[in-house]
Amino acid sequence: MPHDHLSPSGHPYRADNDAPLTYWQTMEIAVRELLIEKGHITAEDVHAQIDAMDARSPAMGAAVVARAWTDADFKRQLLDDGSAACRDMGFDIGPMHLIALENTADIHNVVVCTLCSCYPRNLLGLPPDWYKSREYRSRTVREPRKVLAEFGLTLPDTVTVRVHDSTADMRYLVVPARPAGTEGLDADALAALVTRDSMIGVGIAKQPGA
């Protein structure tokens, strides 16, 4: 049966189990089975790792941002040592060094990995396809305002745009500016306004009711 329908997330499934077996899929199966047969890993390890990967989503990063919006001490801690602050919230961010970048009325931060696809995957899940594309990697450091405009974010010239280039060992999380008119909202309601794109810096947080 072809996968011609959309997944629950609204994205098309990639041709998978029913398409002709490719060379690289054959290699994945072979490598996985050899590593299991040789005792390096177990089948359960693979299941558990995929479960853990599937459980990660931008909601984790959104919870961090919402807490920073509502807890000044936490925000200071987050900006001072992003890794430690996220661990304190119970998020297993692995060995990566996380740097939080605060967007303000005057400064807008945006994150790219020009060399590869480095991304705070333990906090936001796996990166979107475009983040790994030649177009985003090449252009974001050269013409960030134009790139942001393509994402629907046009910033006035009075706002400084800072582009941060990730490395294998250092990942960035943008803390978007808290939207106006959200004074009465609690952290859970605020977290719902924090999009993945706003934490990469190609978007801003949503307005309540938007």
């Binding site: 994205h11 098309p12 990639r14 396809d129 475009w130 594309s133 177009e135 393509e150 994402f151």
Partner: peptide, 8 residues
């Protein structure tokens, strides 16, 4: 141009 399409 950046292609915004995504896949699961």
């Amino acid at each position: 141009d950046i292609n915004p399409d995504q896949h699961d």
